[in-house]
Every structure is written in C-alpha cells, then in structure tokens.
Computed example of a mutant assay.
Amino acid sequence: MKSLKIYIVEDEPIIVSTIETSLKKHGFSVLGDSDDALTALKDIELLHPDLVLVDIQLSGTKDGVDLAILLDEMKQPYLFLSSQTDPDTIKRVKQTNPLGYIVKPFTETGLQTNIELAWHNYQTQHSDILEFKSEGRLHRVNQNQVLYLKAFDNYCYIQTTTKTYLVPHTLKHTSEKLNQNLFIKCHRSYMVNINHIDSIGSNKLLLKTESIPISASQKSIVMSKLKGR
C-alpha cells in the first residue's frame, strides 16, 4: 500500500511519541500532531492528510467526538484511538462515521493492522469516487463521469461530462487518486478515461464531446489498453 500521510490528535505527549515512532517504523508518514480539536482542524485543512488518528479525550472545550463530527462534514477519513469505552461515549461515537475504533492500550502490530485494514476497506468502498477541492469546496465525483485531467502549471483541470473544475494540485498528485483501470496517460499533460474514447486519430484521441492530444510515445500503450478492455 502507498505510504499513508497520517495526522495525530492526542493530548498525551508520550503516547504521541509512541504512535509516531510506530507509524514511521512501518512506513507511514506523520504530517503532524495536536492536543486540541481546533488546532487539529486548522492543521488538517492545511495539510490534507489521508487519515487522522483521533483520541476522544483532548485539551480544550471540544473533544474527539466533536472533532469527528466536523471531519465527517469534511469527508476526512479518521480512526478513533481511545481508552474510553463507557456506554455514554460509545453512544456519542455511534453518531459519527469513523473507519474504526482502536482501544488503548494497543500494541505496535495491532495499530499497524487496524490502520491497514481500515484503509483497505475505505479504498475498496471509495475506489470509484474522486474527492478533490475546487474553489474552496470539497467535491465528490464518480470517476466514470470524468473525461480527462489536464495539467496547468502546479494546478490541473478535471473535465467531467457536465463541468470543468480547477484543482490546486498537480496532475501527478491528482492522478494518484484515480482508478488505474479506468485512466491512462495519453500525453505529458493529459490523463484520459478510456471508457470515453471513441476513436484514435494520428495525434488526437476523439472523445464523445471533444478531442485531446495523444503523444507518439503513448499511442501504442493506449491502443493496447483499449484492446484489453
């Protein structure tokens, strides 16, 4: 699996250090940590982690469940990591949508296994949904509706069947989220959905609504993939 970018929300410095050491040992990337919900929220919006580990007992007026409600609104994947298993806490947790609940104390192997299984299940369920931010809003688009992606300096355009979005990430970064069975690079500046290709010209791919360039070096690769469908 890819090196997950993880953010830790935990109010015990020793536990933060233990988690961080364990995560890095198993190839995960730790983007940062905080001990309160408000700081965590600001960091998460800035850093865009793949996954957030959330303790329930935090510093400040808001606890981990309050944070989880906000993460649900942001469509941000997270796991609870807590020693609290009392009925009242569990009742509140049931109102949220975590990928899982890891009970403290945990083992290094248990932490790794829970994260990998939770992320695998999340990826399986969301494999055909592309999530991205455009103009300050989070969008979730079925990848079947995406025609192509086009590079634009450090940004890229996502062209769907109905709308064009400008995304504040490079083509390379955004394409990592795509279903690789659906999309293929046809030009250094383009990724195309092969299900929308009608025909291949000498230097263009003809889609149902428009055409995009295809480089000579990628032409045979695209044709081979189309034949394999």
Results as ranks from 00 to 15, higher is better:
1 M>T: 14
2 K>I: 06
2 K>H: 07
2 K>P: 10
3 S>E: 11
3 S>C: 05
3 S>Q: 12
4 L>Q: 15
6 I>R: 09
6 I>K: 08
8 I>L: 03
10 E>T: 15
12 E>D: 14
13 P>L: 11
19 I>G: 02
19 I>H: 00
29 S>I: 10
30 V>E: 02
31 L>N: 00
32 G>S: 09
33 D>K: 09
33 D>H: 15
35 D>M: 08
38 L>Q: 11
39 T>E: 05
41 L>N: 12
41 L>E: 02
42 K>W: 05
42 K>H: 13
43 D>V: 03
46 L>G: 03
47 L>I: 04
47 L>E: 07
48 H>V: 11
48 H>A: 12
50 D>Y: 01
52 V>Y: 04
52 V>K: 01
56 I>F: 11
56 I>R: 10
59 S>T: 14
60 G>M: 10
61 T>V: 15
61 T>N: 14
61 T>H: 13
62 K>T: 09
70 L>Q: 15
71 L>I: 09
76 Q>N: 11
81 L>W: 00
81 L>Q: 08
82 S>P: 01
83 S>R: 02
83 S>Q: 06
84 Q>G: 09
84 Q>P: 00
85 T>G: 00
87 P>F: 01
88 D>C: 02
89 T>E: 03
93 V>E: 06
94 K>I: 13
96 T>G: 04
97 N>I: 13
97 N>Q: 15
99 L>D: 00
103 V>Q: 10
106 F>V: 06
106 F>G: 00
108 E>N: 05
109 T>V: 13
111 L>F: 00
114 N>L: 05
116 E>T: 14
118 A>W: 03
118 A>I: 00
121 N>E: 14
122 Y>F: 12
122 Y>G: 04
123 Q>C: 08
124 T>Y: 08
125 Q>W: 01
126 H>E: 10
126 H>M: 11
127 S>G: 03
128 D>C: 02
129 I>L: 09
130 L>A: 04
132 F>E: 07
133 K>Q: 13
137 R>H: 14
137 R>P: 06
139 H>R: 13
140 R>Y: 12
141 V>Q: 08
141 V>R: 08
142 N>A: 11
144 N>F: 12
147 L>N: 12
148 Y>C: 10
149 L>T: 09
149 L>V: 14
150 K>L: 08
153 D>M: 06
158 I>V: 09
159 Q>A: 00
159 Q>G: 01
161 T>Y: 13
161 T>E: 12
164 T>D: 11
166 L>R: 02
167 V>H: 07
169 H>C: 02
170 T>S: 11
175 S>D: 05
175 S>N: 05
177 K>G: 00
177 K>S: 08
178 L>F: 07
179 N>G: 07
179 N>H: 04
181 N>M: 05
181 N>P: 00
184 I>F: 04
186 C>I: 11
187 H>I: 02
191 M>H: 11
192 V>F: 07
192 V>T: 04
192 V>K: 05
197 I>L: 15
197 I>P: 04
202 S>R: 07
203 N>E: 05
212 I>Q: 01
212 I>W: 11
213 P>M: 09
214 I>Y: 10
215 S>A: 13
216 A>D: 10
219 K>F: 10
219 K>W: 08
220 S>F: 01
223 M>A: 13
224 S>R: 15
225 K>N: 08
226 L>C: 06
227 K>E: 14
227 K>P: 07
229 R>Y: 08
